[in-house]
Computed example of a mutant assay.
Amino acid sequence: MSPTRKTIKRLLTVASCLCAGGLIVSWFVAGALVAPCPCVIGDAPIGWNTKTIALTSDSGSTISGWHTRPDRGHGVVVLLHGIRGSRLSMVERARLLHDAGYATVMIDLQSHGESLGEVITVGHLEQHDVRAAVQYARREHPGEPIGVIGVSLGGAAALLASPLDLDALVLESVYPNIHAAIDNRVSAKLGPLSPIPTSLLLIQLQLRLGISPSDLRPIDHLSQIECPVCIASGTSDRHTTESETRAMFEAAPEPKSLWLADGAAHVDLLNHDREAYRQQVLGFLNRHLRTGESTTEKHAPPRNEPE
């Protein structure tokens, strides 16, 4: 065998080993990403007239949560946490909303917190949990306006579940499509080497979960939104970039609002800037959920809002 052919053979062998190694590593990485994230939630908040609830979801999971009621309410807001979180990460939002007179429904999405589930599906099954929570809010608060705040995974699940017959929807740091979500996260670690591991991880959606990437495109569901929508993220978010957030905003129907939190990464936007959150998110909900408003007022174009 000539030296050139030996070199080519060695290179092919090395390439094959690298591909096999990459597949093995990506399989374990993907497994860790979609593994259930259970945790003990503990006692419900005191002083908010809080009830522990258990909902039946078409995801196949029993969904655990809390339902809070103020003495006099302006409506109810369903709170949906991000990936590997739980209703505990939404407690501060619930506090803000309770003080403003809103009831809340906080749930643990399937495979999170105290809700059952075998795997995290990045919104595919979680959308059924969202429907169950909205249906519960509607039963418990007949005739009252209903809003949703969905953070990251929670917002993606809300979009995949749409239309939900809401009066207002807030989407915080929500990925437009699963390819962008994975690529952004891999790029943050590997830089220009991200395309190959991104592709390997996407392949596993079908192999591991039976989900096609085309099933995980929340941006495609924005056209089905039939209520005012507020889209928010941080200007320094590398997981959901500013350009992706602007694309989500452009895809949303009117009336709509955009908030780009200055300097925020993929973090809790409430904790990043509480006053700005109060103005942007609570202000948005107040304009569209306050009882006694006419339909015309509720669905009028939003005021110009700072970005």
Score class of each variant (00 low, 15 high):
A251V: 02
D220H: 10
R84W: 09
G283T: 10
V174L: 02
S187F: 01
M248G: 01
D167I: 00
S187P: 03
A252D: 08
I24N: 00
T52M: 10
S2I: 04
L12N: 07
H128K: 10
S212T: 12
S111H: 14
V91S: 03
P192Q: 06
A247W: 08
V25T: 13
C19W: 12
L258F: 03
I196H: 02
N184T: 11
P176T: 11
G21L: 07
L169Q: 05
P255S: 08
G73C: 04
Q224S: 14
S257I: 00
E226V: 00
L12I: 11
R72W: 03
I8C: 05
T240E: 07
L97P: 08
L270K: 07
I83E: 04
L270C: 04
S64A: 15
S187E: 13
P253K: 12
S111P: 10
N49K: 13
L160W: 06
L88S: 03
S194L: 03
S26A: 14
A44E: 10
A252H: 09
L125A: 13
R87L: 15
T7N: 10
R138A: 13
G101Q: 05
L164R: 02
G21H: 11
F284N: 08
I211E: 12
S64W: 02
V105P: 06
V229C: 09
H266N: 09
R290I: 11
A252F: 03
V186E: 05
G154K: 01
E92M: 09
W27G: 13
T62P: 09
L96N: 08
V25K: 01
I53G: 08
Q224C: 01
Q127C: 12
T68H: 02
D99N: 11
W66D: 01
V105T: 05
L258Y: 08
Y136C: 00
H179D: 13
V91Q: 13
L209I: 05
S214V: 09
I24K: 00
R278Q: 14
G65K: 07
Y136G: 01
D220R: 03
V40C: 03
A54G: 05
R131H: 07
M106I: 03
